[in-house]
Design a protein around this nucleic acid. Structure first.
Lengths: 195, 195
DNA sequence: TATAAATGCAAGCATTCACTTGCATGCACT
DNA sequence: AGTGCATGCAAGTGAATGCTTGCATTTATA
């Protein structure tokens, strides 16, 4: 029954693992802490998963699967500010839902380049859809003909990426705004450049 | 003679430590690796520094000292694009010069909140000078009266922060541009919004 | 050259952890 | 009730690593 979705303890352990990754990172996440958080005996962890790396592998797998469909239900409306908010929301919510990947990817990038790559793949997907969008809007003359769409895209990517990292790593209120405030003010400000 | 600047081994060890922090992070940086990289015996490390944390403390100290004067030699020219490039350059070069703080701050934020705070302080300083600058430019009517200077400031902060993190953590060329390209294209694009 | 300080070196100690193993216990399903 | 599987539990192993110590050796200084 191991590795099946109906396995309650399997999921409890995975959830505890992910929570701990976010809280304290990979190295500081010990098997004992996982077991305790999952209300399970440490030996059970090893019955469900080969080893500590095996836990990571499952998390990566699920993440990559989720990532492959990240923008599947996005559809263009043609209203630029609306579309940008929609894409930004999808991206931000995805990043937040997979915080642990970013945390571990940054910490273990030297030992697990596959995770580092998985972290990069999120903004790359974001860039891809944005670039196509801006190119299309330019063709439809909804944004200025002088716009460098590549530059505009990367501007939006870095803005969103910087905001996301700030949100999960910073605590000073000077650097934090609510998602809604971000969508309203920042995207409106960004869109000014497109005209 | 320990803890003095003329102490050659002291500096060799510190440099090796910082290099390793950037390469592999704090936990994976062992005393043996430091000693090897510094061409010094492991026991010498403990003669120069109380313990591994003591090494970190010195790095933090020096960083905080450097941070306190980060924008000291910036002076406003009134040419907005030029000033933005200048401030961005100062910020980016500082961040790059102190990469290790960011790496360790993200990894050990739970164990060393002081380091996490030191990491935050860099963008906070950046924000402070930017906000004052935009307010002044608005007063001088060099940027549009409708501009939300707080929003513009945070946009620029997140753009720069996102670009910096991308530069030190990503390797895919799709997400990387040279500093000069960043200054030219991104800041020009940003400045469009100010009119 | 003589003295003192810094460094190299090797052995060892203590702790933390991932991971294993063997056995007892409980729970589910027939 | 009885059988089998999952889990709890406790003890232990082995490796990594921070840190100490005592002594030999080199280097600097006077």
């Amino acid at each position: 029954m191991s590795k099946e979705n109906e396995d309650k303890n399997y999921e409890l352990i995975l959830n505890a693992f992910v929570s701990l990754l976010i809280q304290v990172g990979y190295q500081a996440t010990t098997i004992n802490k996982i077991a305790e958080a999952a209300h399970v005996n440490p030996s059970t962890v090893f019955r469900k998963f080969k080893d500590k790396e095996g836990l990571l592998d499952v998390v990566i797998d699920r993440h990559l699967q989720d990532l492959s469909t990240i923008f599947d239900d996005f559809s263009v409306t043609g209203n630029i500010e609306n579309d940008l908010v929609t894409m930004s929301k999808i991206y931000q919510e995805f990043q937040l839902r997979h915080q642990e990947i970013v945390v571990v990817g940054f910490q273990e990038s030297f030992k697990r380049p596959d995770i580092a790559k998985a972290v990069e793949d999120i903004p790359i997907q974001f860039k891809t859809i944005l670039l196509a969008y801006f190119d299309e809007m330019k063709r439809q003359q909804k944004i200025a003909a002088t716009i460098d769409t590549e530059a505009a895209t990367m501007n939006f990517v870095w803005l969103n990426f910087g905001y996301f990292i700030s949100g999960i790593r910073f605590s000073n209120p000077n650097l934090l705004v609510t998602p809604n405030e971000f969508y309203n003010k920042q995207i409106r400000f960004f869109a000014r450049s497109l005209q």
